[in-house]
Computed example of a mutant assay.
Amino acid sequence: MNNTSIHQSFILTFGYGNRSNYDTLLNYIKEFKIDFLIDVREKPRAWSRKWYGDQIEKFCHEQGIEYLSETTLGNVSGTSHWVSPDPEKADQVLQDIAQKAKSKTILLLCAEMDYHRCHRVEVAEELKKLTHQPIKHLK
Rank of each mutant, 00 (worst) to 15 (best):
W51V: 04
I29W: 01
E126A: 15
W82I: 03
Q99Y: 08
E42W: 00
V123S: 07
T24Y: 03
N2K: 00
V83E: 03
V40N: 08
I56K: 12
E66L: 06
D35R: 03
K129T: 04
Y16G: 04
I6S: 02
C110E: 02
Q63E: 05
K139M: 05
H116A: 08
P44V: 01
I11H: 08
E31W: 04
H132W: 04
Q8A: 07
N21P: 06
K50M: 14
I135M: 09
G17K: 03
S103Q: 07
G15A: 00
H81C: 10
F14I: 01
S103H: 08
P44S: 15
S84Q: 10
W47C: 00
Y16S: 02
S9I: 00
Y52V: 02
K30I: 12
H137R: 02
K30T: 13
H61M: 05
P44E: 01
V121I: 09
G15K: 11
G78N: 09
L130V: 04
Y115M: 02
Y16C: 06
K50C: 04
D54H: 15
S69M: 09
D86L: 14
A46W: 06
Q133W: 11
H81V: 14
N3R: 10
I97R: 07
G74H: 03
K33G: 10
D86H: 14
H119N: 10
S69T: 05
I38R: 01
Y52G: 05
L107C: 10
L12S: 09
I106R: 11
E31I: 09
T105R: 00
V93C: 13
Q99S: 14
D39T: 03
A111R: 07
I56C: 06
E88D: 15
Y16W: 05
L127Q: 03
T131F: 12
L94C: 11
W47M: 05
K89L: 14
S20I: 14
F59A: 04
S84N: 10
K50T: 13
I97Q: 05
I6L: 03
I6F: 03
G78A: 12
K50R: 15
E31M: 04
R49Y: 13
A46I: 06
